[in-house]
Each structure stands twice: as C-alpha cells, then as structure tokens.
Design a protein around this nucleic acid. Sequence first.
DNA 1: TGTACATCAGTGAACGCGCGTTCACTGATGTAC
DNA 2: TGTACATCAGTGAACGCGCGTTCACTGATGTAC
Lengths: 207, 207
Amino acid sequence: MSVTPSRERSRRGEGDQLRDDLLEAAADLLAEHGSVEKVSLRAVATRTGVSPTAVYRHFANHDELMIESVLWCWRELDAVLGAVLTDPEEDPFECFRKMGDAYHGFATEEPGRYKVLFTRDLMVLDQVQEMGLLVFAKLVGLVERMLAANGDDRDAFFVASQVHTWLHGIVGLCNKPGSPEAEADPFPPGDELVLAMPAALGLEPKN
Amino acid sequence: MSVTPSRERSRRGEGDQLRDDLLEAAADLLAEHGSVEKVSLRAVATRTGVSPTAVYRHFANHDELMIESVLWCWRELDAVLGAVLTDPEEDPFECFRKMGDAYHGFATEEPGRYKVLFTRDLMVLDQVQEMGLLVFAKLVGLVERMLAANGDDRDAFFVASQVHTWLHGIVGLCNKPGSPEAEADPFPPGDELVLAMPAALGLEPKN
DNA sequence: TGTACATCAGTGAACGCGCGTTCACTGATGTAC
DNA sequence: TGTACATCAGTGAACGCGCGTTCACTGATGTAC
C-alpha cells in the first residue's frame, strides 16, 4: 500500500501542482490504453508517485478525474491543429493539406489519445462537446476560405462535415496497430487516402 | 451464487445448445455495452441462466468467449450487407445506394454491435480480420461493376477503400447517442452525408 | 425386464486480485503573539 | 527572538464489490449385461 517516494511533497500553498501532475499522468495512461475504463484512479496515483487518497484532494471521484483528463487531451489536439489552421494569410489550399497531414499524424502517433477524444460516451458531455465544436469551427472557417477562393457556392458547414467524417474514418480504419509489421490490414495506407481527399471533395484550387 | 433457474438443463447429447445460447447472450451484452471489456463472463452466464462455471465447458476462458461472440456479430453484419450486395443482376448503382443505407442503418440501430466490430484490438486477430475482408471483398466487387458500367478506369480496390473509410467515419461521428434528443451534436444527420457520398466519389451512373 | 455403471451437463463454494472510496491520522510549515 | 497553534499536503489501513478461474461435487440419463 506504500508508494514509491518518487515525488516530493509540495510546499505549502503549492498543492495545485499535484493537480497538474495527476492530469498529465492520466493523459499518458489514456494514451497508452485508449479508453477511460482501463485507466484506474489508483494507476494514475501510482504513476504520479502519490497515494490514491491524495487524488481526492483535487478531484471529486474517478469520473471527474477522467473527464478533466480528456479535456486536457482535447486541448492538445486543438493546439496541434491550431498551429496549422490559424494563419489567415496563408493559401487555404496549402493550409488544408497541412491540416490533413497534422490530423492524420496526431491520430497515427497517438492512437490512444485520438480514440479517447472521439469516444461517444464522452462526447455527450457538454464540456467535451464544446471543445470538439471549437476545433471543428476552425475547419469550417478554412473550408469557407477555400470555397470563396474557388467561387464555389456549396455550404461550408456541410463540406467541412464531409471532410471531418472522412478523415475520422480514414484514421479509424487504416491506422497500424503500433508496430510497423505492415501488410496485415486490407486497406491502403492512410496517407494515400488523405492525399486523395481534397480532389474527391472538390477542394483543390481551380485553374 | 445461485442462479435463477430460467434455463432447463439440456438433455444428454444436446450440451452444445448451451454454447449457442451463451454466444447469443454475449452478443446481446456486447450490443448493450459496446465493448468487450464491459462484458464479463459472469454476466453472460447470468443472462443465459447458468452458473459461471458452466461456461468453461464450452470456452477455454473469457477471451475465447468474447472472440467467438465478436465473430458471431460479424456474421450478422455480413448477412445484412450480403442481402443487399449479392444479386449480380441488379443495377449496381441502385445496389450501392441500398448498401449505404443498410450499412448506416446497422450502425445506427446497433451502435454497440457496430463499435465492437471495428475495435482495433480485435481486428488484429486473424479470424476477425478474415471476416472483415470477406465483407470488404463484396464491396470491391460492387465498385468494380459500377466503374465498368461507367467506363471508369480507377482502381476498384482504392475506390472501395474510400467508400468504406468514409462510411465508417460518418457513422462514427454522426450517430445519435441513443435517444432522439436530437440537435445536440454539431454534425448534419448521417443519412444526408451518406446520400451525398456517391456523387462526391464519382459513383453515379454517367449519362 | 432389472440393475449397475459410465457419462454428461451442469452446480456451489472458495481463491486471490484490483478496484473506488472512506476514515482517522501525521508531520512539516507558515503565522500570531 | 521563541513558542504555540492552525493549516496544508498528504499517508495508510480498511471496507465491500465484481471479477476470472479452480476444485470437488451432484444428479439425471442413457447403455451394457
């Protein structure tokens, strides 16, 4: 029941440090296991170097710890995509290609994290849904710019939904299961499908 | 520890009946919970009206019970899609529309079952992968017929992969979480996206 | 036709495990006088 | 400057739970003689 003394007790008034450390450990465990059910409060405490009871000083219970950790993960995806999507001066088509790569890259490098983000039971929660909308709104904006540049009068919201659903499906079916053992699964590599998407959806610059 | 006597003991020589009953109960529980981890051997036994130990007469352990149940679920999807895909006389474009509806319908009506089918940890298993390939091969055949009808020289395998990844993404992001509480989620209804897919992928009959 | 017996289809108690959560506590540290 | 004390940041033991799995068993049923 004792704990590896891997962590020094915070100084007085700096107890909130533990909260961040717990969230970081929980996010790592979510990334490793890919699901909220497989990450126990006790495991998070152990990884942080603290006893299970200490967690209750910062979170009401296991559920709250997990929800906060998932929101933490969402902020990471937002940061990754935000770095690519926000510059309003850059060519939107170039921007779109980079976004596809970034999205596919995140899902490939962090499959567990990605899976957790889009778990349906979690997306029902208001706060999680809000984060999802925030990221999606950026995509809608980018699609608007592409359509405008092409004089295309399609609905940007609908087209952005097409983009997102397709990307989501590609990374869901084509991701390798960790090791590069390669040719086991029946599908073409995800990046080829990502590459072919803009043309199929009419999101390439008109000549 | 005792069991509701909801089930009569099989007659001698008919012990295999229990095996089928267990698989059916397990498939139902998978449909309800949407994940292998949430379905315990004990829960399957209880639902079947039998003690946990009885399960071991037919399955080596919890893992084997779950794998066989998932294969059972795959056979159901195969049957649903097979009913639509197999008639080689029918107009392939009409057939394709029906297939999209059937796929979307299965995923919407049985979200738990659908989720389990495409769980990555399970798809790694040879037998599960084999079932997936079997279903996918039918789609490739259908796409071949559409491309041929249109004199389209694209690779049927690649186009079928585009179809499947997109459908998978649509049902993954747009499915309602059970009740028709409606306008919570940010995306357009899945059936609209399914309807728009053939045109976007160039899979409508040429005039 | 009667009876001993092997087999089949299960049961029931028990095990050790990790889990979420509660409770009473401890010891260092900053503050008031 | 010294000391009493409140507070903060945790600890450690214990609880009841459901789980997968093992073990010795039971009772009905078909078969051999």
